[in-house]
Each structure stands twice: as C-alpha cells, then as structure tokens.
C-alpha cells in the first residue's frame, strides 16, 4: 500500500469526508450494539431522538456542547501552531477556580462589569497556565505533550486541595465544593426555565473571533506559518518563540473559558466533577473539525449530541451509555483516516 500526495480537494469533497467518516462510525459501532443484543437501527434512532428529538433534548445538547466548543477551540488554535496542548482539562479547572474566587462576593460589582472582569481574569489564568509548558518547550526543549498532560493531574489535585481548604463552602455539609457564585456573576439563561445559558452565545462568538484571527490577522498567519514549518518561519523573520507564547495564551484562555461558563452559567459552584473530561474531548472536537474554528461549533454539537442521546437511549434500550464513548472515539479514528484520504491517494500494490 502506498500513499501519493494529491492536490487540494474541492470544498465539496472536503465536506463529504466527515459525512463518510460518520457513516463508517455508525457501521462499526453497530457491531457492538448487535453484541449488546439490540437492533442498531433502533439504537441509533433513539440516540438521535435523545439528542435532537425534542426541544428539551436539543437545548440539552447545546448546553453540553458549550464547554466542548471552548476546549475544541483551545485545541484547534494550539494544534494549528503545532503546540500540542493536551492540558485543556487543567486550564478549564483553573478557569473555574478564578470564577469562584472572584464571583462569590469578593468583587461587589454589577453584572455588566463583573462578568467581563471575570472573563478577562479567567482567560489570563488559563493562558498563564499554558505559558509555563510553552516556555519550557522553547527554552529547554521540554515536550509539551508531557508537561501539559501531567499538569491536568496536578491542577485537579490542587483544586481538590482548595475545595477541602480555603474555597470550601462552610454551608456545604462537608462536601468538597465551593460557595455558589453571586447573582451578578451568573450568566443568565437564554430562555427562562431551560438550562441553556449565555455561555453558549459566548462560545459561538469566540469561535467566530478565533476564525477571524486565524484567517485575517497577522497573528493567525504567523501561527500557521510556525505550525507548518518553524525553521522556514524563523528564516523569514517570524518571531517563532513569541508566536508560540501568544498561541499558548490564546489557547489556555479559551480552555479556561469552558470552566468559567460551566460554573457561572450552569453549575453555580466549583466541584471536582465540573468536567467529565471536556478538556480531552476538546481534542476530538478539534480534530473532527479539521482544526477549523467554525467547524468546531458543528463538531462540538455532534459530540455533545452523541453523549446526550446515548444517555437517553440507554434508559430505553438497555445498551450501556458507554457506547457514546466508543462512538466518539471511533469517529475520531475514522475522521483521521478521512483527513488522510483528502490529502493522499492510496494505491494498493
């Protein structure tokens, strides 16, 4: 088997491949569904219905997609510059910490001022958390995959320490949780009585802003150049290390926004189960979107839909909801293959 590079595919083909990847994913996972003793068609129908079959389901999916958009954007930005940020989970939790530190009454400001202040502080904290690994990479050649990945565990333990100590809610009946944020620090719900909150709007706006940055600005150009060929970028006078620092700040900041949006828009306080792995799922989301910031919105909704739909399905069809993890993981693999096929032609013998 050989791979031959082929010229850039047309937009139609580029859009066709994710669809084909999803079709292949359904085919593969239907084998597991059969093994679990259920009919694949009815299971997929139930997943789709659970994800988008009612107004409630749809809002639930969008709510679940919100943090994934942020972490997906964080990964897309970093990977574009070949800064392998595997630490979106840690940055997310730091975002949550900053939100409760500033949002539980320490800053008695009205909402229109308090929320922007918190957003800026959260992004700064997340950015600085990724700046460390970026500096270690550029200064000493330390692999950022290792440092960012390990920081996830360090930060989670750090948050655990805070929640058992200074941030512990005195009224929390001993649970490791923080106080609730004050009303002025809460993101309002988009529709009264539904869980979908303005974090989703901020996520969409962030995706558009990131798209503009990557496509239209000097920084985006520099990031892409550094990602494609660091040596070439250095030769033409692009300050490679500085670009990586800016990338780290942006990427870490976006991931931290996920933590802010979850605490401030949904949960109200910080707990150790704030994220069921949104930071890691962000990698899948970004890859499914082929690192395109606008594509991240679609892929985040797709991944969130599978999780939400699988929960609903498992209650009815008695197939474990772990099938969602299998579907998401399989879709990552099929997407990687699809991306490969858009770039190369495969020759068999």
């Amino acid at each position: 088997m050989r791979l031959e590079p082929k010229p850039a595919p047309s937009i139609g083909v580029t859009l066709l491949f994710p669809v084909a990847a999803i079709a292949a994913t359904l085919l593969f996972t239907s084998l597991l569904v059969l093994a679990a003793g259920a009919s694949p068609l009815s299971v997929f129908y139930l997943v789709a219905k659970g994800a988008a079959g009612s107004q409630f389901a749809l809002f639930e999916t969008l709510t679940r997609a919100t943090p994934l958009i942020f972490t997906g954007l964080a990964v897309a930005v970093a990977f574009r510059a070949k800064l392998w940020n595997i630490g979106a989970e840690a940055q997310l939790y730091i975002g949550g910490v900053v939100t409760v530190v500033l949002g539980t009454g320490a800053l008695p400001l009205p909402a229109p001022i308090l929320i922007p202040v918190i957003i800026i502080a959260v992004m700064l904290a997340g950015g600085l958390l990724l700046l460390g690994p970026a500096v270690l990479k550029t200064r000493f050649g330390v692999d950022e995959v290792v440092t960012t990945l390990l920081l996830n565990f360090i930060v989670l333990l750090f948050v655990s320490m805070l929640l058992e100590g200074v941030l512990k809610d005195p009224m929390g009946l001993g649970w490791p949780q923080s106080q609730k944020v004050i009303a002025d620090a809460q993101l309002p719900r988009i529709i009264q009585g539904k869980r979908l909150h303005y974090g989703f709007v901020i996520a969409i706006v962030s995706a558009i802003v990131v798209w503009v940055i990557m496509k239209k600005t000097v920084l985006g150009y520099e990031m892409r150049a550094v990602g494609h060929n660091p040596e070439g970028a250095r030769f033409v006078g692009i300050p490679v290390n500085r670009v990586l620092m800016k990338t780290a700040l942006l990427s870490g900041g976006l991931a931290a926004l996920a933590g802010f949006s979850e605490v401030s828009g949904l949960k109200g306080n910080l707990t150790l189960d704030l994220s069921p792995g949104y930071g890691y799922s962000g990698i899948v989301v970004a890859m499914l979107a082929m690192l395109n910031p606008l594509g991240v919105i679609a892929s985040a909704i797709f991944v969130a839909g599978i999780f939400v739909g699988a929960d609903a399905m498992s209650r009815v069809a008695k197939v474990p909801s772990y099938i969602a993890d299998v579907m998401v993981a399989t879709s990552l693999l099929t997407m990687v293959v699809a991306i490969l096929l858009t770039r190369f032609r495969v020759r068999w013998r």
């Binding site: 892409r224 150049a225 494609h228 060929n229 040596e231 070439g232 970028a233 030769f235």
Partner: peptide
C-alpha cells in the same frame, strides 16, 4: 524546501 518556503502554505 526546508527553509526558503513553507510548503503547505
């Protein structure tokens, strides 16, 4: 290839 140009751009 390695220095003068950025091939994928």
């Amino acid at each position: 290839h390695a220095v003068g140009t950025i091939g994928d751009m």
